[in-house]
């Protein structure tokens, strides 16, 4: 299946902003995180298609996965 992966803030350092990725059916968010060389602890916010998601969530064809470190403002 194909997904769109978006990275933000420090996660872009040495990586990318946005990429299309070909993944085996049923791959979960955790597997994508680990494949990037990131740890679970570094993940602040997971969004799938603009909704908050979790590391255990399985991805589907054409999903957009967005990963953020824990950041904030206001």
């Amino acid at each position: 299946m194909q997904i769109t992966l978006k990275l933000f803030a420090t996660f872009r350092n040495g990586r990318f902003k946005i990429a299309e990725q070909e993944l085996p059916e049923g791959t979960d968010v955790r597997a994508v995180v680990l494949s990037l060389g990131l740890t679970e602890e570094e993940i602040g916010i997971v969004m799938i298609n603009g909704r908050h998601g979790g590391l255990d969530q399985a991805l589907k064809q054409n999903d957009t996965l967005s990963l953020f470190p824990l950041v904030g403002g206001g």
Partner: peptide, 20 residues
């Protein structure tokens, strides 16, 4: 400790955009 000093409050543009 890290997010605000690095990106300022404006780090929120992309987050709120992703969240719609």
């Amino acid at each position: 400790g890290e997010g605000l000093p690095t990106y300022g409050t404006n780090v929120l543009v992309n987050i709120l955009n992703e969240a719609g």
